[in-house]
Design a protein around this nucleic acid. Structure first.
Ligand code: SF4
Ligand code: SF4
Lengths: 147, 147
DNA sequence: TAATATAGGACTAATCAGGTCGGAGTTGAG
DNA sequence: CTCAACTCCGACCTGATTAGTCCTATATTA
């Protein structure tokens, strides 16, 4: 029903925390999970994935944790979503060989990929920095930002 | 993973068929299902839902079928999606009382509803008529259509 | 009346997201 | 140097949502 997964939701929450509220920009999975009342292991998994993709760096051992590797203004919502949920696709035919039965006779595929591209561009124009009101840059250049 | 349901996909296919290819703008659920190799019963259910909402009208009995009640240019993709999949929501907190555990401590809710609104506007700017290349109006007023 | 079409509910099967478990690696105090 | 505590990490399990099926009732037309 056009919903993004809870994992993405949690990941977003965590990244925003690292960007805005974390003591020295560093926080452990446990700390973030307790702050937002999220299952620890699940959030850990999300952060692991983000670490694998290089959005955050992990520090093991005591007093370890995660920290951002890029400025929050350089991380788009689109990147986060795709890092966790995989490539953005509105339909089943969206990516890979995952094509549906009616791939051959389908007449709405092309219009829908156009829609997908536009949604992607919406996600790309929203950066992590714009999600934290006080901190970072909060540019007032909203209008005309499409595309 | 931000995908719209197969039902919506089928419904879209059916509506486009009624708008563009159907003999006299009328076709039965069976005919459409066979045309696109869709489970008949499932497509029937989708069309019933669309009929209930008033997007198509049903004619029972022999030589019956469905036909659009509005010009294709007056039906937006947003309407179709919401008619079949229910209200558009990116997150679990999106609608109703379906609120998640971290509703109270959540810090990303507001930005995400903004994103939802923008995605909705993308879907609203795409009409059924724009999905059939030859027929109907295909306006070239894409740029600057956001919001 | 026989054939064809929609209307609507209940039921089953498959898929996927959400959540859980135990283990491996690192750190730092003693 | 040793060891215990803390962290990340990968695989596994389970419940919820979706996709699809089946059956019965009702309406229309040839
Ligand atoms: S029906 Fe068409 S648009 Fe939908 S998944 Fe299949 S090929 Fe893609
Ligand atoms: S975590 Fe926040 S944005 Fe996500 S569903 Fe819960 S309240 Fe909504």
């Amino acid at each position: 029903m056009l919903r993004l997964s809870k994992k993405t939701d949690y990941g977003l929450l965590a990244l925003r925390y690292l960007a805005a509220e974390a003591p020295a920009g560093v926080a452990s999975a446990r700390a973030i999970a307790e702050r937002y009342d999220i299952p620890v292991e699940l959030l850990a998994k999300v952060l692991q994935q983000l670490a694998r993709l290089g959005y955050v760096a992990a520090q093991k051992g005591a007093h370890g944790g995660y920290h951002l590797t890029r400025p929050a203004s350089a991380i788009s919502l689109a990147e986060i979503v795709q890092a966790i949920d995989g490539p953005l696709a509105i339909t089943a035919c969206g990516r890979d060989e995952e094509q549906c039965e009616q791939f051959g006779t389908c007449t709405v595929r092309d219009p829908l990929v156009r829609v997908t591209e536009r949604i992607l561009s919406v996600l790309q124009t929203m950066t992590l920095a714009e999600m934290v009101p006080g901190e970072g840059a909060m540019p007032m250049v909203w209008r005309g930002a499409a595309r």
